[in-house]
């Protein structure tokens, strides 16, 4: 039991710097969107409904591969692991129902895409959200 507590404590210590960083969803300032609710972000990222209230088609950007930022994003947004998110997409892709988000190699490339496309969204650290984009949802880490 004591060992388990120690393990949990060590995990918390290791995760502390991550928790301090804030994860946010950003859009193009021309999207006409000021705020998004958690439900709206879920609907866009999980391909349920990709339309912004301004009428523009939403284009979510995901990060390529299994990286730490992506893991945190889906854990915070829907409480799912990347394996579960992949299983989710497997069932939709192999039904031809909807497309998964576009993939960007890294955060800079995601920001670049958002800056160039009015309907695009991406998730980044708050410190990475620069003048090119607007923060519309805070994942509240």
């Amino acid at each position: 039991m004591a060992l388990r507590k120690l393990f949990c404590f060590l995990c918390l210590m290791l995760l502390a710097p991550l928790a301090a960083a804030d994860l946010v969803v950003v859009v193009n300032p021309k999207s006409g969107i000021e705020r998004l609710s958690q439900e709206e972000v879920i609907n866009i990222y999980l391909g349920r409904y990709r339309r912004l209230v301004s009428g523009i088609a939403a284009e979510p950007i995901d990060l390529m591969g299994d990286n730490e930022l992506k893991t945190r994003f889906y854990r915070r947004l829907v409480g799912k692991t990347l394996a579960e998110i992949n299983a989710y997409w497997a069932r939709l892709i192999f039904s031809g129902r909807t497309r998964p988000p576009h993939l960007a190699e890294n955060v800079e490339s995601a920001l670049h895409y958002v800056a160039a496309h009015p309907g695009a969204l991406a998730y980044v650290e708050r410190s990475q959200a620069d003048m090119r984009v607007r923060v519309v949802y805070d994942l509240g880490e």
Binding site: R51, A87, Y88, R91, L92, F94, S95, G96
Partner: peptide, 28 residues
């Protein structure tokens, strides 16, 4: 647009709640 989708051709039967295909074991 994001609200409307039309499909024509050979299409999966939509019986399962989560997917049109019952053969993709990884997905369920």
């Amino acid at each position: 647009d994001a609200r409307v989708a039309l499909r024509a051709g050979r299409i999966g039967s939509d019986f399962m709640m989560l997917a049109d295909s019952r053969l993709v074991g990884y997905s369920y």
